[in-house]
Design a protein around this nucleic acid. Structure first.
Lengths: 120, 120
DNA sequence: AAGGAATATTCCTGTCAATGAATATAAAAA
DNA sequence: TTTTTATATTCATTGACAGGAATATTCCTT
């Protein structure tokens, strides 16, 4: 219960941290697209495209709609919202304590003195 | 020149897409911290901590301040701003074409007809 | 029903990156 | 100057994961 909440879903990040997958995500800005179209536009082989799309779907970044033979992939809003709030929470923190570095240095100095080994 | 701008720096993402590094970043919400303190609090060995900190620094997520013996690491605002604008650009796009899926389906149908192989 | 198109899955292989252990470097303390 | 503290770096090992090739599956077309 002592919330050590990582907050951000790691699968989202690791899914995006791969060039081809990032390219897919960027491509899908243009709207929903079939596997074949994605593979063509990005110069990927169909199986690799499918694999990357699976990773992206599993992580919740994309969703699929089966249309007969085709599978149409499109972006999902949720993970981007999650990323957004995560980033914002950091921006807030950084505004506050923007440069407590000097405070921290003084803390360090004090600790030194409190555990002072010199015989005074 | 034909701007195929990935926009988002991949090193930022891949740096964050590793649990220990994410933990470090989360920990540094509390403010700047030395290597030893980070290692202790996260139960990491010092060398591993240093290595992860190097990755985070190289990617621009952290910056170091050398203070005598110690190295004090702290968060940098810039990569979070970059992430923020990247995410926002997506949110805008998704608001617009939120569900052009049906449009796309009709496009598909049309293409089928235009490249119709039946003898008319 | 047969053939073909679109997509997914499996298996293998190579590569990269995280880990552990040991060691190097730098500064502080004695 | 020797020792100790704090941190970085090197090297070898290992595990995860992306790519390639082949194949399975599903649906459409004829």
């Amino acid at each position: 219960m002592s919330g050590k909440n990582p907050g951000m879903d790691m699968t989202t990040l690791s899914a995006l941290a791969e060039p081809n997958r990032m390219n897919i995500v960027e491509l899908l800005r243009d709207g929903p697209m079939t596997v074949g179209e994605i593979a063509n536009r990005l110069g990927l082989r169909q199986p690799q495209a499918s694999k990357h799309l699976k990773v992206l779907s599993d992580s919740g970044i994309l969703e699929v709609k089966a249309e007969a033979n085709r599978r149409i992939y499109k972006l999902r809003a949720e993970p981007f919202q999650a990323l957004d709030s995560w980033v914002k929470s950091f921006q807030r923190v950084m505004e506050d304590r923007f440069d407590n570095l000097e405070d921290y240095l003084r803390e360090l100095q004090n600790k030194e003195k409190s555990q002072d080994h010199s015989n005074g």
